[in-house]
Design a protein around this nucleic acid. Structure first.
Lengths: 107, 107
DNA sequence: GACCTTCATTGACGATCATCAATGTTACAG
DNA sequence: CTGTAACATTGATGATCGTCAATGAAGGTC
């Protein structure tokens, strides 16, 4: 697991400065986390509320619980969401700084 | 090939409204275009100049010409770049509105 | 203790992806 | 017309991905 800078220099809008190979790989890795419709929908869902229970995500999306868990893991590993366990339940939150970092990268 | 709205409603930052399944798939498709280090680097390269010749990209990246052509095709199909042929040479340009659309989607 | 619920992990499957060599296509030069 | 240069396309291969069923781990209830 790798820690990623949250503030990102623009890379992809006109006038952007050249970026390193490492930075390109770093960015691509986080864009890849959003490269699936289900994960975009999960992020969108989390963006609408403070936190959401995994059980609710499993309800709302017509996918198996392991599949939801899998997508959540990828989002978590990309630093876009955080998880917290309270008793039996698991709750996920958006990491606004991570989204902002990607936005900055785009311009 | 599908025409995609260039202006995007926020989807992934706090307070974003729920988006449709179609919109999620649409966004994911364009994020997928940026989900590869080479393609991020190409977009970054195009962002630094008005237009870039394919031959130059093949020179600069240590990849075969078909591979570069493949990545350019994906970027073009995602609407992130445009191509123009002048004689034997091919030139690619960034589509700033497409990048801006993605940025808007993120917040 | 035994049992149930919630979530994560594993293993397997077909599908998609990144890459390259080989080939096709188009434009220019002689 | 013959050759050459620039890109695109095709076909093949190994790697990664999305999905689910089965299983594991941990918390709560009785």
């Amino acid at each position: 697991m790798k820690v990623v800078a949250l503030i990102e220099a623009p890379c992809c809008s006109p006038g952007a400065r050249p970026i390193s190979t490492e930075a390109a790989g770093d960015l691509a890795a986080r864009f890849k986390a959003l490269a699936d419709p289900t994960r975009v929908a999960i992020v969108n869902r989390l963006a609408g509320t403070d936190e959401v229970c995994v059980c609710r995500l499993v309800e709302e999306f017509e996918l198996s619980q392991p599949t939801i868990s899998h997508h959540l893991r990828l989002l978590r590993e990309a630093g876009l969401v955080t998880s917290e366990r309270r008793g039996t339940w698991g709750f996920y939150r958006l990491v606004p700084e991570a989204i902002a970092g990607l936005r900055n990268a785009l311009g």
